[in-house]
Design a protein around this nucleic acid. Sequence first.
DNA 1: AACAGGTGTTTTACTCGTGAAATAAACTCC
DNA 2: GGAGTTTATTTCACGAGTAAAACACCTGTT
Lengths: 185, 185
Amino acid sequence: MTASGGRPVHEGAGADAAAGDTVAAVVRQWRAVRPGLDTGPMEIIGRINRCAALLQQAEDAPLRRAGLSRPEFDLLGALRRTGHELTPGELARETFSSGAAVTKRLKQLTERGLVERRGDTRDRRVAHVRLTDAGRDLVDGILPEQLAYETAVLSGMDGPRRDELAALLGELLGQLEGRLDALRA
Amino acid sequence: MTASGGRPVHEGAGADAAAGDTVAAVVRQWRAVRPGLDTGPMEIIGRINRCAALLQQAEDAPLRRAGLSRPEFDLLGALRRTGHELTPGELARETFSSGAAVTKRLKQLTERGLVERRGDTRDRRVAHVRLTDAGRDLVDGILPEQLAYETAVLSGMDGPRRDELAALLGELLGQLEGRLDALRA
DNA sequence: AACAGGTGTTTTACTCGTGAAATAAACTCC
DNA sequence: GGAGTTTATTTCACGAGTAAAACACCTGTT
């Protein structure tokens, strides 16, 4: 199959895959050592995890140049894309991180002059966080760079397949999120 | 998390009909605030990162029951699936983590009696690590549970689409891994 | 008005991973 | 057969995240 140049289309549970990616190799090892195991889920979950790890590493490059970690950028991005102030609690939900982590990040970002906080006049427990001009400029400057970089990283795949992949991931994610919300209820 | 990570706060009433997953909503926010940006990569990279986060959370459940973290299980799994001893360096490469992390994990797993080490007779720098019987039994006991759990998590998608998703992820991963090696050279 | 309970945020104590230096042993090549 | 280099592994100092407790404030009830 590698020799014929075709990519494995039906790489189902029983197919002998071309060497391909490292996950395929791992799955092959498991099947050799513990035959009869249903290794199907590995081919999706293992690959997602590995892709995420590699992408994160790759993506870090443009951000690091600006002295930002990815979680920090996510926080700034949440403020930028919603277009209004957010409370620490909302930021935690928005960036899927713990409240404590947000507190720490806000402290640093405030010190760097990228965000500002003000107290709520009615409820003195809550704070409102907004981007400073410097913060907004930073996000606006980085984002196109970031997206261009990501485009380059994905450029090995042609357009239609990228769309197909995005659609399938969207379907999976929608279901995972539904399932998670269900567990939360 | 990614630039596209997060949940929309003010998504307009009634948008949930076509909302899809959270990443789609985030992308919509970006497009509203900064039109003209090519948000294509977010729909893949953002979703992969978010899926990875959710899956990791979900996957942790069966492992935690056994008192193992995922990186620890990966280490044990590498020993189990290769079927032979590995050096710390090989384990680091195999589990995609740093040497220092492997050293720490080995220390803990050794104390728990799950792995053993012996020195190489020829080259006294290198160590060889292998599973103890208890370690092997633990992995063999957990793995089917783990795979069953993962199958359940993915059960919202039907077979053909799962295969298609696995194939596309394999293609992407293969390219990312190639690209990474290229960048390293 | 005062208290009980709930909510938003921060603090605390801890774990874990990382990069860089340290250690130690093996090659190389003159 | 040493001096210098490379390779394998560990140690160290530190940063970042987490869960749980602490804190501060609000709200409903009586």
